[in-house]
Every structure is written in C-alpha cells, then in structure tokens.
Amino acid sequence: MGLLGKIDMKNPEITMICFEEYIDKRGTTRDKHEGDGDFKEVFFGRLIEEGSARMLLKTFDVKKRVYYGNTSMEAEISLLMANQTLAAPGKLIYDPFVGTGSMAYTTAHFGAMVFGSDIDGRQMRGKDRQPGIIRAASQYGVAPRIIDLCTFDITRNPWRCGDLFDAIITDPPYGVRAGAKRLGRKPRLGKTPQNVTVRESPHPVRDNDQPYIPPTKPYELSSLASDLVLLARYMLKPRGRLVFFLPTVTDEYEELDIQAMLCEGMEVVANSLQNFGSWGRRLITIRKSTSQHYPLPTFESAASKSESDTHVPAHRDFREKYFQGFKKLDTD
C-alpha cells in the first residue's frame, strides 16, 4: 500500500482501520464471542470519520448524571434498547417501570416523546423538589420530551384506552435490586411458604410527597413477563414494539421460554443474551403484528395459566433461584 511514514501510535497523521464482515445472524441468539474470527471478508483502509454513536456512551454515563439510583441501567444498554424501539421524532414511547428513567433519556435523545410510570414515586422523584428524572432529562436537553411521569401499579393502571404507544421500553423488576411488587395483601405467613420472601426496601426514608403507601405483594417473574406481553398488545399501536430485559438461568434457558410467553398477535423480532455466568439477561424485542383490538389484560390470566401450563420457563421464580445461587430448587 506504499505506507512509508513511520508508525506513531500516539499522534498518528492517519489511522488505519480493519473491518470484518460476518454472516448476518439477526433474529437468532448467540454468545458474546461465538463465531468470532469466522468472518467472510476483511477490509483494511484509512479511517475517515467515526460514527456518532460512540460518544453517546460518555454523554449518558450514569455516574455523570445528576440523578440516578441503584436500579439505573448502564448507558450502553440504554442506548441499545432505545435503538431497538426505533425511537424517532413524533413517536410516543412508554416505560411502565421507569424507576430513575435511564431509558427515557436515550429514547428522548432520538427524538421520541416519553411517558413513564412506577409504583414507587420516590424512584422518579429523588429528594429534590423538582423530580430527579426531569433534572436528568434537562441535563441532556430533553426535558420537554418527558411528557409525564405518574405513580401507579401497572397491574392497576388508569389508562383510559389502548393503541397509544409506538413502543414500550422497560426493565421490569425481578426482585433482585428493586422488588417486583403489585398492590394487594401479602400472602399470609405459613400458608404458602414458597411465596414468602423478604423484600428489600432500598428506600427506608419516606417522602412527604407520598401521603399513603399501600401494601404490596411479590410479583413472580414469569407471570410478570406474560402480563407485560399482554399489556403491550393492548397499549401498542399496530407494529409497535415491546423492548425489555428478561433475566434468566443460563443452563436452564430454552428458546421455548420466550415462545411460551407470547400471545396471539405478538411476535419476536430479536433476542440477545448478556451473559453473567450462571444467570444472564435477554434483551427481547417483540412486535405487535396485528391491528386487531384486544382488551386490557386482567393480570390474573398468567397466574392461573401457570398452574395448568406444561412448560415451566427457566425464569420462573427467578428471584428465589437467584438468592439460592441457582442450585436446583426442590420442586415438591
């Protein structure tokens, strides 16, 4: 190539770059390094310009954010999730477990308008008068795109109608950091021992803004996941997307776990694994493939289904499995 200048790694005059082309594996799952080096072609050339996405990792760095919490999602993943929603100006996107709002910022960054709700108002507010999510959104210049934040339990939601959103983007609670919970009485001790779990309460201090905090009961992950798909079918516009994380047990996971939580009119677009060893989380993208109207889910169907259902997904009772270090549960 006639490159005669001397190599200077610190202050190069030109930078050379190498690309590897792989077979498109979209729609299938693979491990992080699976197939590495197995490329079709290699391109070598001079770097002319870098993409604009790289620097967003720094922009959205959680540690530099004026408001975040122990449930905040890393910048890179929040950006990837926003990308999966096809966020763009004029779109309306919803996070029903918005917490400290990590994905609201990235989705709004791409121009979308965002609604957020959470059962725990303190997650969205933080300590100051102005809600934490609004303060962080202002830091990114997207506060006007945060349409509203509301406090409610998604299983007892006040939405007047469905077919509203272009996408739902969310990291549902799975009881490890932020307890998965819903309104209602806790199961009585002694009656159903396998359901009685000690919920962490990460926020011991009560906010004066919250005059009454109703009692909550645990929400099992596989029911939550099926409910979320049903809710998305109701709340999404046709062709709208549901993008969410599903934690699961690495060794026990099967493709069927995802298929089994679908309902009529909802199809999987993508499923990718972030592997942490014995467990991992899957970023699932599901599309509403129907323009039919469906009723608001009752949030009871999954619970009753789980008993008659023959397929037990690996993410069932994830919380319990997590705290038992993923040893096989005694099933009788």
Binding site: R125, P131, D148, L183, D209, Y212, P214
Partner: peptide
C-alpha cells in the same frame, strides 16, 4: 411537583 399519584388504597 407535577407527578400525579394514581395509586389506589387497599
């Protein structure tokens, strides 16, 4: 502070 509390009591 702009956030409606739509939670219901038990």
């Amino acid at each position: 502070n702009g956030i409606p509390n739509m939670l219901l009591a038990e």
